[in-house]
């Protein structure tokens, strides 16, 4: 059974009474341990698709199954727990919490689970070092550069070793060298921890380096 199956998902936005159909019956299977890239024109609906996959947005119709179980049938607590334990999300903009330091931001998913502080901070520090931010643990998001904040967000998504990593342009703000470092990291966590990852990107080299490539266009997803 596929880890994630998307069945006939519809999603529309309404603007001034007009309906914009962004996803029109998307169906797709993603197997455990796959590393998938998703490309598409700006405004094609990649972010929308990722939000629906990550249960952050409700589709108008259709289902998302995780290990055969419909995620949108879960109650509030189960969905929250699903988001916390199973999904790691990297947003297109970093969306760190401004009152907390980089370290606390990275540890946040573990703290939400009420894990013990010291252990959570220790692992968060390790992750920050891995994304090259060992010197910035005590900075608040306002005191980080855009690329640094994006890397903190990636560390935050990985802190609980989720089953699925959904990353919306994680290298959009990075210089080519750092970007390549992040790609390396993604491949590593995919290989070492068996994390299934869906990565949205405009970077053709990155996209081509992924084992499976998807293209979103005209409200549907096709293999590229």
């Amino acid at each position: 059974m596929a880890l994630l199956s998307i069945r006939n998902v519809f999603k529309s936005y309404f603007l001034h009474g007009k309906r914009i159909d962004v996803l029109r019956g998307v169906s797709l299977d993603i197997e455990r341990g796959e590393l998938v890239s998703l490309v598409g024109a700006s405004g094609a609906g990649k972010s929308t698709f990722l939000h629906v996959l990550g249960t952050l947005d409700a589709p108008a119709a259709g289902e998302v199954l995780f290990e055969g179980r419909s995620v949108f049938s879960m109650n509030d607590a189960e969905i929250a727990e699903f988001r916390n334990r199973t999904i790691g999300f990297v947003f297109q903009s970093h969306y760190l919490l401004p009152e907390f330091t980089a370290l606390e931001n990275v540890a946040m998913p573990a703290l939400i689970q009420r894990r013990e502080r010291a252990g959570a901070y220790a692992y968060a520090r390790e992750l920050l070092e891995r994304v090259g931010l060992g010197q910035r643990v005590d900075h608040r998001p306002g005191e980080l550069s855009g690329g640094e904040a994006q890397r903190v967000a990636l560390a935050r998504a990985l802190v609980l070793k989720p089953a699925v990593l959904l990353a919306d342009e994680p290298t959009g703000n990075l210089d080519p060298a750092t970007g390549e470092g992040i790609h390396q990291l993604l491949r590593e966590v995919n290989r070492e921890l068996g994390i299934t990852a869906v990565v949205v990107t405009h970077n053709e080299t990155l996209a081509r380096s992924m084992p499976r490539r998807l293209r979103l266009a005209g409200g549907g997803v096709s293999e590229a």
Partner: peptide, 14 residues
Amino acid sequence: EISVLKALGVPDGG
């Protein structure tokens, strides 16, 4: 921030 917390898995009750 509320949205981010929710995305990170804080339930409504939280």
